[in-house]
Amino acid sequence: MHYTFHWDPAIRAMPQLLWGAATTLEIAALSMIFGIALAIMLALFAQSHNPILRAIHVTWVEIARNTPALFQVYMVYFGLGSLGLQLDSFPSLVAGVTFNNAGYLAEAFRGGLRAIPETQVRAARSLGMTAPQVFVSIVLPQLFRIVFYPITNQMVWAILMTSLGVVVGLTDDLMGVTQQLNVVTFRTFEYFTIAAVLYYLLAKSVTVTARLMAGRLFRY
């Protein structure tokens, strides 16, 4: 082995790598916001008596959980493009990761909804609250408490999934910046080692923040 390590170029590129890490976090956060909204919708579809809505829930969850995340990103970027709806790399990655997040979280939300006693809903309705008021004031707070840790795990997974953006031409995120720097300098080990550390720190910061939040939110 005659590889000579040169860390100076990688250290000098830290501002670019940190900017890429910020973009990675942005993509993951957007995909989680959209994914949570869609997951709640799918969980409600699962409880519907309408067979079409239940079929949408089952189909979405089955595809999201039983196909590679790379396939889902490809289908958004290349699949929609072949149908005449061409999206840029950034929205394609957000949409692909959102699809995956929604599929996994939908089952967590479905289980969370089942864990909330129906008697609470009936009691709230008997007090004159409308169905939307019951859902927002009674159901959602308990639901988010039940699925808090699955959401945290999915956020970590979303951060790691953003690395798939490099296969659809995204160059602004952490993996894209790292790949560009590697192509120019051929310092593969140095740049990807730093990128791995940054991914680890992003993921660890999510879990630590979630633990601190849980200690404050769920003390009772």
Rank of each mutant, 00 (worst) to 15 (best):
M1I: 14
M1L: 13
H2T: 15
T4I: 15
T4V: 15
W7G: 05
A10D: 00
M14Y: 00
P15E: 02
Q16G: 15
L18C: 05
L18D: 02
L18T: 01
G20M: 01
G20Y: 00
G20P: 03
A21V: 04
A21F: 06
T23V: 15
T23N: 13
T23A: 12
T23L: 12
T23S: 13
T24R: 05
L25V: 13
E26H: 15
A28L: 04
S31G: 04
M32I: 01
M41S: 14
M41L: 13
M41Q: 15
A43L: 05
L44F: 03
A46Q: 04
N50Q: 13
N50T: 08
P51H: 07
P51W: 08
P51Q: 06
I52D: 10
R54T: 04
A55C: 05
V58F: 15
W60D: 12
I63T: 11
I63P: 15
I63W: 04
R65F: 03
N66L: 02
N66Q: 06
N66M: 02
N66S: 05
N66F: 04
P68T: 02
Q72G: 10
G79R: 10
L80G: 11
S82A: 09
G84Y: 01
L85S: 06
Q86N: 15
D88K: 07
S89K: 08
P91S: 05
P91A: 06
S92I: 00
S92T: 04
G96D: 10
V97R: 10
N100C: 10
N100W: 09
A106F: 01
E107H: 09
R110T: 09
R110Y: 04
R110K: 13
L113F: 02
L113V: 03
I116C: 01
V121S: 11
R122K: 10
R125I: 08
R125H: 08
S126V: 10
S126M: 12
L127R: 14
L127V: 10
G128F: 02
A131Y: 13
V134A: 11
F135C: 09
S137R: 15
P141E: 09
L143I: 09
R145N: 04
F148K: 03
I151Y: 10
V156H: 06
A158V: 00
A158P: 02
A158R: 12
L160N: 11
M161F: 14
M161L: 11
T162A: 04
S163I: 06
S163K: 08
L164K: 01
G165K: 06
V166W: 03
V168Q: 07
T171D: 14
T171V: 12
G176Q: 03
V177R: 03
V177C: 04
T178I: 08
T178V: 07
T178Y: 02
V183T: 11
V184N: 11
V184L: 11
F186A: 12
F186Y: 10
T188E: 00
F189R: 00
F189C: 01
E190S: 10
A195C: 10
A196C: 07
A196T: 02
V197I: 09
Y200Q: 06
L201C: 06
S205G: 04
V206A: 12
T207L: 09
L212P: 12
L212W: 15
M213W: 14
G215S: 09
R216W: 11
R216P: 07
F218L: 02
Y220D: 13
